[in-house]
């Protein structure tokens, strides 16, 4: 929602909820909910500990590798499915199953396959993120105007140039939307992977704070995670808007 061109209402509603949180916390009615101010203070000192920094690094590392793989594999498979009917028929049933399947249930199986370490977490991130990237890329490729491809061919584009200069760029809005949705799912994946399997990184901290009922730190951790996910998604959305602007005449 916008007001006079600013996204005021969204920020305002966020403020209202922050105030409600603070009041509920101050009232001491629910022991699971400490005041927001206490959470922020805890968070401020938490991010300065080496424990948190190490956990964040491990988490970021697994996330980056898993996401990187998901983007490379997802976009490639999506392009192939969008361009070649045979590939599409071969894979689309699996992609459609996995995109909506409760993947958390698979994590114990992954643990057997990939052990208790970081590999399992990376695979979890990958599996959470990749399917929606495949689907959106495929849709984007299928919507590339036929005449743009004919234009490339008639002006002598090599296959490489056809994809690099035309097809991928024409599908970019959909590919970016897929990556944005994939990022959000990947954040889920990294936490679930760390929690269920490896008990490392952020998952270890979550486990530690929730078991010792250290609610200030627990919520601080959660807020940082959500903020990171939202920031990344907003960054992609920003690029998407720019791209949509140029792609406006499709």
């Amino acid at each position: 929602m916008t007001l006079y061109g600013y996204r005021v209402p969204m920020m305002a509603s966020l403020l209202v909820w922050c105030v409600i949180w603070e009041l509920v916390g101050q009232s001491g009615l629910m022991f699971l909910v400490p005041p927001l101010s206490a959470v922020l203070v805890a968070g401020y000192s938490m991010v300065q500990t080496s424990t948190w920094q190490a956990a964040a690094m491990i988490t970021l590392h697994s996330f980056a590798i898993g996401m990187g793989l998901a983007i490379v594999v997802g976009v490639s498979l999506g392009v192939l499915m969008g361009r070649f009917k045979a590939v599409d028929e071969l894979f689309s049933i699996w992609v459609n199953i996995f995109v909506s399947a409760p993947l958390s249930a698979l994590v114990p199986v992954l643990m057997i396959l990939f052990g208790m370490g970081e590999t399992t977490v990376i695979v979890t991130v990958f599996l959470f993120a990749v399917w929606i990237i495949v689907l959106d890329t495929r849709a984007g490729i299928q919507h590339v105007p036929k005449s743009l491809i004919e234009m490339g061919r008639s002006y002598g584009a090599s296959t490489f140039a056809l994809y690099g200069k035309i097809v991928l760029l024409a599908a970019l809005p959909e590919i970016l939307a897929g990556i944005r949705l994939g990022l959000v799912r990947g954040v889920k994946g990294v936490v679930i992977g760390q929690l269920l399997v490896a008990i490392i990184g952020y998952g270890e901290l979550f486990e530690l704070y929730s078991r010792s009922f250290d609610m200030e730190n627990f919520w601080a951790l959660t807020i940082i995670l959500f903020a990171a996910a939202m920031l990344m998604s907003a960054a992609i959305e920003h690029i998407e808007k720019k791209v949509d602007y140029y792609a406006g005449v499709r």
Partner: peptide, 19 residues
């Protein structure tokens, strides 16, 4: 046998790259 540099095509829907 295929497109060639001695021919150029003008498309009904323009086929411009919007980016």
């Amino acid at each position: 046998t295929g497109p060639g540099p001695e021919r150029a095509f003008v498309f009904q829907d323009f086929a411009l790259m919007p980016w």
